[in-house]
């Protein structure tokens, strides 16, 4: 059971401005049947004043998706395109009182559909499906969420954790393979916001004692490598260290995987080289 505000329930049960504007000047779409929610906005714009004179929506989705769309049409109606383009997902959520964390992506969808509708108007009215303008890297393959979309959500909503990002953008909500990548984006953002964070003094790998070397390798295995292998039902253990030769054993799903040699060389080997010492070599036990 979700904790929906009365405002959400009101807009869900009595949605405003449902339908399609006739002879629309702009049409914006976002989402799909596959994603589980989709929104189509049509707008009528006064050519001289650029005021949105009429706006209607159609939504496939849950109660919060329908309510977000409905309240958005009320917010945008009567505004100029300039003013309307400044509506953020946070504004939509605020207008509804609040939205459950896991439903915040519904408000993001509203913001994106409006952005697409305005773009459609600017381009002469041809329907526009929301997408990122630059070729931003796709982080979440399941929901097609790009780095740019994640960064925007992180900045607007001051997100700190991977879970937050999933709630707001859906990224990482399905197979979860991109959670590490999302964490890396967050790390970057947080590192920028905390410029005074002291860099730990790092000694070169070659100058470590043998026990320190083993601990350093195990640390990388535990924090960087195992989490990814675990996602495919596998794991790894350190067997031996002789000079620069690291001997490991792949376990579980990885042991029987035909791509295990690739995993060993391209992933395990490369990670250890990047994080510790470029002279390290990985061998299968």
């Amino acid at each position: 059971m979700w904790d929906y505000t009365d405002k959400v329930l009101d807009h869900f049960k009595n949605p405003r401005n449902v339908g399609v504007v006739e002879n629309a000047d702009g049409t914006g779409q976002v989402g799909s049947l596959i994603c589980g929610d989709a929104l189509k906005l049509t707008i009528k714009v006064n050519k001289e004043t650029e005021v949105i004179e009429d706006i209607k929506f159609q939504t496939f989705g849950c109660a919060s998706a329908i309510a977000s769309s409905s309240v958005l049409t009320e917010m945008a109606k009567g505004k100029t395109l300039e003013e309307a383009s400044k509506i953020t997902n946070q504004d939509i959520a605020n207008a509804l009182g609040s939205l459950p964390e896991a439903k915040m992506h519904c408000s993001v969808m509203g913001m994106e559909a409006l952005e697409a509708a305005i773009k459609s108007y600017r381009q002469g009215g041809k329907p526009v499906v929301f997408e990122q303008t630059q070729e931003s890297k796709v982080i979440c393959q399941c929901f097609n969420i790009t780095e740019e979309m994640i960064l925007k959500a992180v900045h607007v909503n001051h997100l700190n954790t991977v879970e937050d990002v999933t709630h707001f953008t859906k990224a990482g909500g399905a197979c979860g393979k991109c959670k590490v990548a999302i964490q890396e984006i967050l790390d970057k953002v947080l590192a920028c916001e905390l410029p005074n964070k002291k860099q730990e003094e790092k000694r070169p790998f070659s100058s470590l004692t043998i026990v320190e070397k083993i601990k350093a390798i195990e640390n990388i295995l535990d924090t960087e490598i195992k989490p990814k292998l675990n996602q495919d039902g596998g794991s790894i253990e350190l067997v031996d260290l002789n000079g620069n030769i690291v001997t490991v054993r792949l376990l579980g799903g990885c042991a029987s995987c035909i791509a295990s040699q690739m995993t060993l060389k391209n992933f395990v080997g490369k990670t250890l080289q990047d994080k510790l010492d470029k002279n390290l070599e990985v061998k299968q036990a």
């Binding site: 675990n230 039902g233 596998g234 794991s235 376990l251 579980g252 799903g253 042991a255 029987s256």
Partner: peptide, 11 residues
């Protein structure tokens, strides 16, 4: 089952 798979079992 997935827990066991991540601990060395074939699943």
């Amino acid at each position: 089952c997935k827990f066991l798979a991540s601990h060395g079992y074939r699943l």
